[in-house]
Amino acid sequence: MKIYNIKRTQYLPIKLSEAWEFFSTPANLNKITPEHMGFEIRYASGGKKMYPGQLICYKVNILPGVPVDWVTEITHVQEPHYFVDEQRFGPYALWHHQHHFREVKDGVEMVDEVNYAIPYGIIGRMANRIFVGKEVKTIFDHRYKVLQDYFQNRIIKA
Rank of each mutant, 00 (worst) to 15 (best):
Y4A: 08
Y4M: 07
N5L: 10
I6Y: 10
I6N: 12
R8C: 07
Q10N: 09
L12T: 02
P13H: 00
K15T: 15
E18L: 07
F22P: 02
F22I: 02
F23E: 02
T25K: 15
T25L: 13
A27R: 13
A27W: 03
L29C: 08
N30P: 00
N30V: 15
M37P: 06
E40S: 12
I41H: 03
I41F: 11
G46Y: 10
G47N: 07
K48Y: 04
K48S: 14
K49G: 00
Q54I: 03
Q54S: 03
Q54G: 04
L55D: 05
C57R: 14
Y58K: 10
V60R: 06
V71D: 08
I74N: 07
T75C: 05
V77Q: 01
V77C: 10
Q78K: 14
Q78P: 00
G90L: 03
G90K: 01
Y92Q: 10
Y92M: 10
A93T: 05
L94A: 06
H100D: 14
F101H: 08
E103I: 01
E109M: 09
M110Y: 07
V111G: 04
E113M: 08
G121I: 07
G121F: 13
I122R: 13
G124I: 01
M126F: 14
N128P: 05
R129E: 10
R129I: 06
H142K: 08
H142Y: 15
H142C: 09
K145D: 13
V146F: 04
Q148P: 01
D149P: 07
N153Y: 00
N153K: 01
I155K: 13
A158I: 11
